[in-house]
């Protein structure tokens, strides 16, 4: 890992009391509060590995996959949640899956993710890279909620997906999913 990222050409955005330096894809250096930085499991892991070595020099953790404009957004999210989230005990896998289905997106996060679809995907990728599970989940949930109401064609158009099926393959897929197409409308529980 290079320590050269803190070169004189890179802009350092310092905030009082912050300790961990990270650099984005473009080489821009950010100084983060340790609590904020450790919300990323990647940064946490590196810091734990480095142990005593950490903080004693000008080392900069390079986040080579994250663009500055996306990192700035993520930083906003991290700072908000560092101040508002309570420590949660880790859930069992089954509980987590159920929670995934049931959880609602909090209002603040809804506003945060009320951005262009492409930006949501970029935030999702960056959150995955940085291993910020909660943010990644929120992005996935947001996209999933959008997808739920769209047709195949609408999804292709909205997310720039090229239809790479041949007509024969499309017919085959149609046959494969025929089992659910003739399903009668679901009866609600309020009859």
């Amino acid at each position: 890992m290079s320590t050269a990222a803190s070169s004189s050409t890179s802009e350092t955005i310092a905030e009082p009391g912050l300790k961990i330096k990270v650099s984005t894809k473009e080489g821009e250096v950010f100084e983060l509060d340790e609590k904020v930085a450790k919300m990323s499991q990647v940064i946490r892991g590196i810091l734990e590995d480095l142990g005593e070595q950490n903080g004693g020099d000008d080392s900069v953790l390079p986040l080579t996959q994250v663009e500055t404009r996306i990192f700035r957004k993520i930083l906003v999210w991290l700072k908000y949640h560092a101040g508002h989230d309570k420590e949660e005990a880790p859930k069992a896998e089954e509980d987590e899956i159920i929670a995934r289905f049931c959880e609602e997106i909090p209002e603040w996060d809804q506003k945060f993710l009320n951005v262009d679809q492409a930006v949501i995907l970029e935030i999702m990728l960056a959150a995955d890279y940085l291993d910020i599970k909660k943010l990644r989940g929120l992005c996935c949930k947001t996209v999933a909620n959008i997808l739920k109401t769209k047709t195949v064609e609408q999804i292709r158009e909205m997310y720039g997906i090229e239809n790479d099926f041949t007509p024969e393959e499309e017919e085959e897929i149609r046959k494969q999913t025929a089992w659910c197409e003739d399903e009668p409308p679901r009866q609600g529980s309020n009859h």
Binding site: F101, G137, A144, L147, K148, V152, E170, C180
Partner: peptide, 15 residues
């Protein structure tokens, strides 16, 4: 990520 994800899965499968 969504409740009743079956429809999404089947739609996505066709894209």
């Amino acid at each position: 990520r969504t409740k009743d994800a079956e429809k999404t899965v089947l739609t996505m499968r066709q894209t």
